[in-house]
């Protein structure tokens, strides 16, 4: 029963990892950009939630109403102000610029909030649980998981059924021809990054409610998100959800063997999948 429980908890944790990954997946799909600062932006969102809930007395989930648009704006400005200048055939500039951003965000958070671990207080929600057939599921992990499925479903729908999604796909296909269609690439990229960070805002708030956080934890969030993307297969949003679940379950099972093996076993499963299926479990169909 412990093992079944571990798989269940791991699956729910995978929802959070899919949320970490969805924003990463989106910007890679639209503009082939990998944002090294992604994890630190997740943590930034958690701190924004902290400030909103302590200063205004809001419940962290209500604070989303402020944090999501704030992160969208940060993403749009970041892309148009800095990252668009780095876009091109050479991968080095975006990589190093986002790496520099990561250091700036980390140390900026240290300056403002210190290194003390923080947590978002969500009241009863943190401890509420449902029981059935000998298994207990926390209401919060369940909400996180359902939100992850809903967000990925919404992103998928946006990508294939809206004008914005059409613009994203067209720009991803051929940037200059999309420009001929009246789509300003700089603006489209800004929207993609804004959307990516809006998803990141949700991920950050949930992270902050689930566990304590400090300015240094961004790196491992980036890695979890990245592993979910690669395990699921590049450019496949539902695959990313599956990748998050695989990673979450691997960690939960490793933790079941010994608590110190939790994170390591996730990495090892990732490396094994990379070795045997380098294109991920659900590679995007070509053509």
């Amino acid at each position: 029963m412990d093992w079944v429980n571990a798989i269940l908890q791991g699956t729910l944790l995978g929802g959070l990892y899919a949320l970490f990954a969805a924003g990463l997946s989106l910007i890679f799909g639209v503009m082939r950009l990998v944002n090294i600062a992604h994890g630190d932006l997740i943590v930034l969102a958690a701190y924004l939630g902290l400030t909103a809930s302590t200063a205004l007395g809001l419940h962290p989930l209500v604070a989303l109403v402020l944090v999501v648009p704030a992160m969208f704006a940060i993403g749009y400005v970041l892309q148009r102000g800095i990252l668009n200048r780095t876009m091109g055939d050479d991968i080095l500039p975006p990589l190093l610029v986002t790496f520099g951003l990561s250091i700036i965000i980390q140390n900026g958070l240290l300056t403002v909030y210190t290194a003390d671990p923080q947590k978002l207080q969500a009241g009863n929600l943190e401890t509420a649980s449902l029981s059935a057939g000998g298994l207990t599921v926390g209401v919060l992990p369940l909400i996180v998981f359902i939100t992850a499925v809903a967000i990925i479903g919404a992103l998928q729908w946006m990508f294939y059924h809206t004008a914005l999604g059409r613009a994203f796909r067209a720009t991803s296909d051929r940037q200059d021809i999309a420009q001929l269609m009246g789509l300003n690439r700089a603006h489209v990229f800004g929207l993609a990054m804004g959307l990516s960070l809006a998803v990141t805002a949700v991920a950050g708030i949930f992270l902050g409610i689930r566990t304590s956080f400090d300015p240094a934890v961004g790196g491992s969030r980036l890695i979890f998100g990245f592993e979910a993307v690669i395990i699921g297969g590049l450019g496949n949003l539902w695959g990313t959800l599956a990748g998050g679940i695989v990673l979450g379950v691997s960690q939960a099972l490793g933790g079941q063997i010994h608590p110190s093996l939790q994170i390591l076993s996730g990495h090892i499963v990732f490396l094994v999948i990379l070795a045997v299926r380098p294109r991920g479990l659900f590679p995007k169909m070509e053509g």
């Binding site: 990245f226 390591l264 070795a275």
Partner: peptide, 28 residues
Amino acid sequence: ALIFRLRGAYFAIGTWVIAEVFRLVAAQ
């Protein structure tokens, strides 16, 4: 041989995963 399967920026994050694995193993 393993991380060369990742391209460009994903290669970069792959190297980070390797470093994390080494760190976690060292702690064991």
